[in-house]
Design a protein around this nucleic acid. Structure first.
Lengths: 88, 88
DNA sequence: TATATATTTAGATATACATCTAAATATATA
DNA sequence: TATATATTTAGATGTATATCTAAATATATA
């Protein structure tokens, strides 16, 4: 769980999630919103992918990224567990 | 928001929250559950306090820490925002 | 095969972070 | 005033992280 929070603890990665909230995007499209290199962006995408916050799918030359909404419930539950007093 | 996630991204700090979920504890009581120095623990408590995840209250010689449940709703809402597609 | 898109690798740099030790400071109690 | 509890400060160390440049690799398309 700490690795998920770690993945969420960077402004640029939160911004990536914000972008993907609106619509699925290719790496190039995502990149337009940042002033970092594609190598750095790939690194951030890798981190988000490793903890299952995003998923990728190739479409022709492009690789499209999207939010992995299915992991959302799990994260909410974990956080809920942390704060729910009087419960195991 | 990234600062909250940053605060949550350390195993020891998550463990502190786990402990305080069960009951309020003094620093000494918390410390018994770790093998770090009191200086390091104070540092972690400071980080959690700065983002309002915990609050402290002096009782005589002791200072008791407890979860700040009121911030819970806010965090859940923020995370919900990140993942809720089709919504601003 | 050449080009476009993306990832990966390697090495470099700078910053942040977790931890320690040791000492100083602060507050409350005996 | 001496002791207990906790925080803070300062300096040190080691590791992790974000970023870069440059090059290599992979996949798909023209």
């Amino acid at each position: 769980m700490d690795r998920v929070f770690q993945a969420l603890s960077d402004k640029n990665r939160l911004k990536i999630l914000e972008l993907l909230k609106k619509r699925d995007m290719s790496v190039g499209e995502i990149l337009e919103n940042f002033s970092i290199t594609n190598a750095s962006l790939s690194h951030h995408l890798d981190i988000l992918k490793r903890v299952n916050l995003i998923v990728s799918e190739r479409k022709g030359q492009y690789i499209y990224y999207s939010l992995n909404v299915s992991v959302f419930e799990e994260i909410m539950m974990q956080i809920s567990k942390i704060f729910n007093k009087n419960k195991k």
